[in-house]
Design a protein around this nucleic acid. Structure first.
Length: 579
RNA sequence: GCCCAAGUAGCUCAGUAGGUAGAGCACAUUCUUGGUAAGAAUGAGGUCAUGGGUUCGAAUCCCAUCUUGGGCUCCA
């Protein structure tokens, strides 16, 4: 076992990889090669694009270097020496120029390769295991992440202390692929996207629609319980609305181009807030009415750059589970706390237990009085601390119009997804001149908070699919029960069972195809249907059903009533799994 | 938007000295009525992403466009 940290292993492996690339391309220019969360990468400027064969060759050369047991040697050099050593390496020269003058410049050598590097590294390339690393893929990456600077070629790889750990990681990557929502969306017939009909626009199929309905119904129920009212607003609005909100000034790149009707420009909405504000401003508001909590499943369209679209996770048309909370300064702490609680509870109900919060504070350019920012921040921080949510501070990461909490949700594979956002808005209340009359008879500016909990239904659906690997909890499952008559003569009894299960509120289908029972089971199994009820002579005679679970467990025969009691109980308790 | 790769039947994919396309699954019809993850036969199904070009001839070579994938940048 290695005594080195993963970081040391990975950073060292990136040097070994760079050495291999240098052997393959003597004219290569080197940029940077750090260790990252799950591995390492190195960026190169190369004379031609890399091919998969190149990666194999680079792997082979790396193995050679590891087996050759080159020691890593650290040396401190003067700035002048460094500039000489890296005289033909423009990216390294740029890095050297940007190093703070007081910091010593260190270089690391192993074999014939020398790199500008702070270290630390393993003592010897032989401390890396030749069978525990893998080069994963190549990609383009801008020098210093700046899209105006040259595009370099990046190679991603990873290394672990042992072969077993590498294998576990590669297995996990495979599992991620198996759970990919784009793949499951097709296999389970949940949704589709159509390039010919417009990229980034989602089509929900009947089974996806079922799940969406369940989510929406549950969402509405919870919101009414939580003191929200539900709004419906238009999908388009005249340019006046977007000029007033400021979106045309600072967000027009993200909006679909306007259409012209009666010599007026109409824009498809990228956000719901101005519409909610229109409703607020239909009346003179009193502090007695506040807080107002107005929610909408609002479908918006945003122009996302073509390269960023990704399945359901990044789309151009989506439905936000949006809400705006409008309240007085005195109410703000309670309201924020309540939103956070409400959100955490919703996530638990959906089967997500782990959340991490990010608290984003005032950026340099911002609107709104500092006292309001301060009060907002205090209320956000207090809510997180009261609910004992671990959080990180994102200094200056707030929007120009207000501070926010973002919640990242951890899925079954430990991946974090940014879903929930709770944001103050000091911009639009000003622009739309929102007010209320206080107890003092004076006009006041209310606080307004935007919040989207699931984020967008599309994105949430994508994460939900991957979280459960398509095996949805019974209360979500589009088909909960598959009836499997063994032969045609059993269809009549199956139809009877169908009627009884439907009457009990279960989503159930009969497989009356000419397939054999084995094939019917296989189909249901692949569709990840929680319950399969086999119905043959024995069951028809005794009025029972034979219950099989998608976990491959066979519960044997039980009466239809017993099955209904069992299944409806699990649905009512919203249990995540089907046992 | 940028770099690289890819686009052949509904799906997964084969099809390189350029000679008008193939498999498995799915689908349809027929036979089979079978106790816990694939019964059998037959059949239908493709302007090889789109538009140009080279050629006697293009799925195959070249160019452009669109889309998808892996990343980068972006995500007030």
């Amino acid at each position: 076992m290695s005594a080195y940290s993963l970081e040391e292993l990975r950073h060292s492996a990136s040097h070994v990889m760079a050495e291999a690339v240098q052997r393959l391309f003597p004219e290569a220019k080197f940029a940077i090669g750090p260790a990252i969360e799950n591995g390492f990468y190195y960026d190169f400027d190369l004379p031609r694009p890399l091919t998969p064969e190149d990666l194999e060759e680079i792997s082979r050369l790396m193995q050679e270097s590891i087996k050759a047991r080159h020691p890593f040697e650290r040396e401190e050099v003067s700035r002048q020496e460094a500039e000489q050593i890296f005289g033909d390496q423009p990216y390294k020269l740029e890095l050297i120029r940007d190093l703070p003058p007081e910091e010593p410049i260190s270089i690391y050598r192993h074999g014939a390769f020398t790199d500008l590097c702070r270290g630390p590294h393993v003592a010897n390339t032989g401390d890396l295991r030749w069978d525990a690393f893998a080069l994963l893929n190549t990609a383009g990456a801008y020098w210093r992440g700046d899209e105006k600077r040259p595009m370099l070629q990046r190679i991603y790889g990873t290394i672990f202390p042992s072969k077993q750990e590498l294998k576990a990681y590669l297995d996990q990557l495979e599992e991620i692929q198996r759970r990919d929502h784009r793949r499951l969306g097709r296999e389970l017939d949940l949704f589709s996207l159509h390039e010919e009909a417009g990229p980034g626009l989602v089509y929900w199929h009947p089974k996806g629609g079922r799940i969406r309905t369940i989510i929406e119904d549950f969402w509405r129920m919870r919101h009414y319980e939580g003191g929200y009212e539900i709004l419906y607003t238009p999908h388009i609005g005249r340019s006046w609305l977007w000029e007033t909100s400021g979106h045309l000034d600072f967000y027009s790149e993200g909006m679909y181009a306007p259409m012209e009707i009666d010599e007026q420009k109409y824009y498809i909405k990228p956000m719901n807030c101005p519409f909610h504000i229109m409703i607020y401003n239909t009346d003179v508001r009193s502090y007695r009415e506040l807080p107002l909590r107005w929610a909408e499943l609002g479908t918006v369209y945003r122009y996302e750059r073509s390269g960023v679209l990704h399945g359901l996770l990044r789309v151009r048309g989506f439905t936000q589970d949006d809400a705006h909370i409008i309240c007085t300064p005195e109410q703000i702490e309670d309201e924020i706390l309540e939103v956070l609680r409400f959100s955490l509870r919703l996530w638990r109900d959906m089967g997500f237990e782990n959340v991490v919060a990010y608290l984003a504070t005032r950026p340099e350019k911002a609107v709104g009085e500092p006292e309001r920012w301060e009060q907002a921040l205090v209320s956000l921080r207090k809510a997180l601390e009261t609910e004992r949510v671990s959080y990180k501070i994102d200094e200056g990461g707030g929007a120009f119009y207000g501070p926010k909490i973002d919640l990242k949700i951890k899925d079954a594979l430990g991946r974090e997804w940014q879903m929930t956002t709770i944001q103050f808005d000091f911009n639009e209340p000003e622009r739309f001149d929102m007010k209320y009359t206080g107890a003092d008879g004076q006009e006041h500016r209310p606080y307004m908070v935007h919040r989207a909990l699931l984020g967008s239904l599309e994105r949430f659906f994508g994460v939900l699919i991957e979280h459960y690997g398509g095996a949805f909890p019974v209360w979500f499952a589009p088909v909960q029960v598959q009836l499997i008559p063994i032969a045609d003569r059993h269809i009549a009894f199956a139809d009877e069972v169908l009627a009884r299960l439907k009457a009990a509120g279960l989503r159930v289908e009969v497989d009356d195809s000419g397939d054999r029972m084995n094939a019917k089971i296989r189909k249901a199994q692949l569709q990840k249907i929680p319950y399969m009820l086999v119905i043959g002579d024995r069951e028809a005679e005794t009025g029972s059903v034979s219950v099989r679970l998608r976990t491959n467990e066979n519960l044997g025969a039980m009466s239809v009533d017993d099955f209904v009691a069992r299944a409806t109980g699990i649905v009512a308790r919203r249990e995540n799994y089907n046992l």
